[in-house]
C-alpha cells in the first residue's frame, strides 16, 4: 500500500472536484537543513517537501490548480505560508524574526524550498514549526541546524509544534 495515512487523511477537494491531489505518499514528512551563516547572521534553510503535499496545500489555500508549476504566484503563496507556519523567536515572548524567500526547485515527486531566517545573534530561542499540521494529522517535520561543528535536530509534530533551539557538542 502506498498511502497508509489516507486512513486518517481526508479531503474536501472532492467538493471542488479534483481528486488527483490526494497524497501520493505513505507518510507525510518534511526534512530541512539550516546552515548558520556567521557573517550574515542568517540561517540558510533547504527544506524538502513531497510535491503532492505542497500541491494539495496550495490548491486548498488559493483554489488554483497546479499552482506549483507556476513561478512567482507559487513563490508568493509558499512564502506567505512559510511565514505563518515557521516562526523563530529569539525571546520566548518576542516577535518572530523575518523569513526571507530565496526560491524553489520543483520535480515530479519532491520539491526543495529555500529561505533564510534572519537572526540578530547566534541561533537560540524558540522555533515554532507547524508545516502541514492543518492538512495531515500525522505530519512529522524535522530540521537539522548546523553551526560550524555543532548541530542539533529538532523534531516537530502536532502535539509538539515548538521547540527550544539548543546545541550540544557533536557526538561522534
Amino acid at each position: 500500500m502506498i498511502n497508509f495515512s489516507r486512513l486518517l487523511a481526508f479531503t474536501v477537494l472532492l467538493v471542488v472536484g479534483g481528486f488527483q491531489t490526494a497524497t501520493a505518499h505513505p507518510f507525510h514528512a518534511t526534512l530541512a537543513e539550516g546552515h548558520w551563516n556567521e557573517e550574515s547572521k542568517t540561517l540558510e534553510v533547504s527544506l524538502w517537501v513531497p510535491s503532492h503535499d505542497l500541491e494539495k496545500l496550495l490548491l486548498k489555500r488559493t483554489g488554483i490548480q497546479n499552482l506549483l508549476d507556476q513561478g512567482k504566484p507559487a513563490d508568493q503563496a509558499i512564502h506567505s505560508y512559510l511565514k505563518e507556519t515557521i516562526q523563530w523567536r529569539e525571546k520566548p515572548q518576542g516577535k518572530p524574526v523575518p523569513l526571507k524567500w530565496i526560491g524553489k526547485e520543483v520535480s515530479v515527486e519532491e520539491t526543495w524550498l529555500y529561505f533564510e531566517i534572519q537572526l540578530t545573534q547566534e541561533p537560540g530561542g524558540v522555533l515554532e514549526y507547524r508545516l502541514f499540521f492543518e492538512q495531515e494529522p500525522e505530519q512529522q517535520n524535522s530540521i537539522e541546524i548546523i553551526k560550524g561543528q555543532q548541530k542539533t535536530t529538532l523534531h516537530f509534530h502536532r502535539e509538539q509544534p515548538s521547540r527550544p533551539v539548543r546545541f550540544a557538542p557533536l557526538l561522534r
Partner: peptide, 14 residues
Amino acid sequence: SETSPSFESLSFSA
C-alpha cells in the same frame, strides 16, 4: 489512540 489535533489550524475537512 489518535492524538489530538492542534485546534489553532484545523481545517473544515478535518
